[in-house]
C-alpha cells in the first residue's frame, strides 16, 4: 500500500498544482476587468487591447493580480480550494433539509440511482438466468443485448421522463427507470458470461454426479459467475448514477445533482457546478467502493483468492 501511495499522492499533487496554474490564464481577463473597475491600474488599459492579448502575456504584465484569479466570485475556472470550501459549506454547514444543501441534492439523486440500480440488476440477473437456461431466449435476445451496449441508450432519457410525466408518474420513479435500463444491459451481458464461465470439465463432473439443472446452477454456475457479476455491477452503478443525473436535466428539476449542474450553468455559477460535479464524483466513488468491499467479502466467503 505504501509503495502505491507515494506515486499516487505525487500525481494528485501535480494535478492540483496544474489546476492552480491553469486557473491563472483562464481567469485573468475577468480579474483584470474587475480590478480596473475597482480603480486598479492594469496593463494594457483598454479592454479591447486586453481581449486581443494572449492570456499568458496578460499574466506576465499583471503579476500583482495573480492571487485574485484564485478568489473570484464567478471565475471561469474556480481554484481547488474554492470548490473545496463550497463543498464544505453546502454539506456540513447547511441543514440537510435545506434546498442549498448538497447532501439533500445528493440524496435525491442517490435514491433514484439506488432504486433504478436495484431494478436494473434484478431484471438483468433474471434475464441472464433465462438466457443461460433457454436456447431460444439465448439466440433471440442475447444479440440484441450485446448490440444495445454499443448504442447511446441514454438518448432515451428525456423521453422517458416526459412520457411518464404525461401519464401522471413523477418524482423519483422516472429517473429510476433511466438508471434501471442503463444498468440493465451491462449486468445481463456480464452475468451471462459469468454463468457460462464454468468449463466443460466442471460441467461434466456435475453430470457424473447426476446433478439436476438447479443444483448445477446453485453449486457451480452462480458461484462461478460472482467475479463477473461484480465487475458488471461496478459498471452498472456508475451508469445508474449518470442516468439519474441526466434524468434530472430535461424537466428542469429543482432538486438533485443534475439540477444543480443545470442551474449552475444557467446562472454562470461555476463554483456551484464544480462542487456538484465533485459531489457526484464522490458519490460514484463511494458506490463503486462499497461494491468493491462487498465483492471482496463475497469472494472471500467463497474461498476466492482476493
Amino acid at each position: 500500500m505504501r509503495r502505491a501511495a507515494v506515486p499516487v499522492l505525487v500525481v494528485l499533487g501535480v494535478l492540483v498544482a496544474f489546476w492552480y496554474a491553469v486557473a491563472v490564464p483562464m481567469n485573468i481577463k475577468g480579474v483584470l476587468t474587475e480590478a480596473q473597475r475597482a480603480g486598479v491600474v492594469v496593463v494594457p488599459e483598454s479592454g479591447a487591447d486586453r481581449r486581443a492579448a494572449s492570456a499568458w502575456r496578460l499574466v506576465t504584465m499583471n503579476l500583482s493580480v495573480v492571487p485574485d484569479t484564485w478568489a473570484q466570485a464567478r471565475p471561469r475556472l474556480p481554484a481547488p480550494h474554492q470548490v473545496a470550501i463550497e463543498l464544505w459549506e453546502t454539506t456540513a454547514q447547511k441543514k440537510v433539509t435545506s434546498k442549498r444543501s448538497l447532501v439533500y441534492h445528493g440524496w435525491v439523486t442517490l435514491s433514484a440511482t439506488l432504486l433504478g440500480f436495484a431494478m436494473g440488476t434484478g431484471l438483468g440477473i433474471l434475464l441472464a438466468i433465462g438466457i443461460v437456461h433457454n436456447r431460444v431466449m439465448d439466440m433471440s435476445v442475447m444479440p440484441w443485448a450485446i448490440v444495445s451496449q454499443t448504442i447511446p441508450i441514454i438518448a432515451l432519457a428525456p423521453m422517458i421522463i416526459v412520457v411518464l410525466y404525461s401519464i401522471g408518474i413523477q418524482g423519483v420513479f422516472p429517473k429510476a427507470v433511466i438508471s434501471a435500463y442503463l444498468s440493465f444491459f451491462p449486468v445481463v451481458v456480464g452475468m451471462v458470461k459469468g454463468l457460462r464461465s464454468p468449463d466443460a470439465m466442471q460441467l461434466d463432473l456435475l453430470r457424473t454426479y447426476n446433478a439436476s439443472q438447479a443444483q448445477g446452477f446453485w453449486k457451480l454456475r452462480l458461484p462461478a459467475s460472482m467475479p463477473y457479476l461484480f465487475a458488471s455491477l461496478k459498471v452498472g452503478i456508475a451508469a445508474s448514477l449518470v442516468g439519474a443525473i441526466v434524468g434530472e436535466l430535461p424537466t428542469g428539476a429543482v432538486s438533485g445533482l443534475g439540477a444543480r449542474l443545470l442551474a449552475g450553468s444557467y446562472y454562470g455559477q461555476t463554483v456551484q457546478i464544480w462542487s456538484a460535479l465533485f459531489a457526484a464524483a464522490i458519490l460514484a466513488a463511494c458506490l463503486v467502493g462499497i461494491l468493491g468491499v462487498l465483492e471482496r467479502i463475497v469472494l472471500r466467503r467463497m474461498g476466492g483468492r482476493t
Partner: peptide, 29 residues
C-alpha cells in the same frame, strides 16, 4: 514506473466517475 504506479489508480478512479457532468463547464468554456 513511478508515473504508471501513480497515474493508474487515479485514472481508474476517474474512469468510474460521471464525467458527462463536466459538460456544462465545457459548454461554458
Amino acid at each position: 514506473d513511478f508515473l504508471r504506479r501513480g497515474l493508474l489508480p487515479v485514472g481508474n478512479f476517474i474512469a468510474a466517475l460521471p464525467i458527462v457532468g463536466t459538460a456544462p463547464i465545457l459548454v461554458m468554456w
